[in-house]
Amino acid sequence: MFAPQFGYHRASSVAEAGELLRSNPGAKLLAGGHSLIPVLKLRLAAPPALIDIGRLAELRGIAVDGGSLRLGALTTHAELAASPELQRHAPALAQAASVIGDPAVRNRGTIGGNVAHADPASDLPTVLVALGAAFEIAGAGGERTVPAAEFFQGMMATALGDGDLLTAVVLPARPPGQGQAYVKFAHPASRYAVIGVAAALTVSDGACTAAAVAVGGLVPVPLRAPSVEGALAGGPVAADALAAAADRVAADLGDDLIGDVFASAEYRRAVAAVWVRRALEAAAQAA
């Protein structure tokens, strides 16, 4: 529990953080530190330097602009969970943020650090994939925006390259008639998602006019569930219809499922549909 030696730099602007990243090969960005510090303390990594971006005010805050939300990368999970804007415009994200870890983790951990770490058992990426979020990245060659579906590339692997700094997450505000939900089967020790499901159902006159469903936790990268979405679109949101749609998730999971001592891949595959159904029911209820 004692980290190896590392250099420390505190950036005073996003631009300076980028320069420090590029002039310190192998350096890691330090925001909330809730993924990075344990890795250092367990001596699983020994980066030569940390670049502290934790005090960059320009990376903070939640802004609503017309039909979209912009979340600064340093916005903490606690801020996400407590935000009235988020509860109104992206309630699934607020819900997911409220069930990360425990209060201490939520007070320190940030959305930027969370998605950049891309832990497959994390909660926020699943919601961001379902809601069609995009990520603003400041890199050596300027700024660019990457959609969530392209951002998450593998277990703990993202579109972020050397010298890149994630500055914000943007996502569309909830349209009228859309209900959202995030449910998770939490690991009893870590509280990471063994299975996490995000659902957004737009309902009109008892029928589902649009559906977005993503699953995480049991797959290396959060996945949209097109079979489930297809079964829902145009159909009723009655319990049996939701259950039938949820059962389709098996076709969307692929072959590469995560398993561990607590919950095997086989078990997770077998019960995934139950958790999808619970998410669909909650989303339909909220619509």
């Binding site: 367990l42 690991h187 009893p188 020790a189 870590s190 990471y192 001592v261 607590f262």
Partner: peptide, 23 residues
């Protein structure tokens, strides 16, 4: 309901941290 010190067959303690050992 929750707790177990899990060793694998080679004698490695698999539940080696509080992320794995459920209190």
């Amino acid at each position: 309901l929750w707790e177990e010190a899990v060793y694998d067959e080679s004698g490695q303690l698999v539940s080696g941290t509080m992320l794995d050992y459920a209190l």
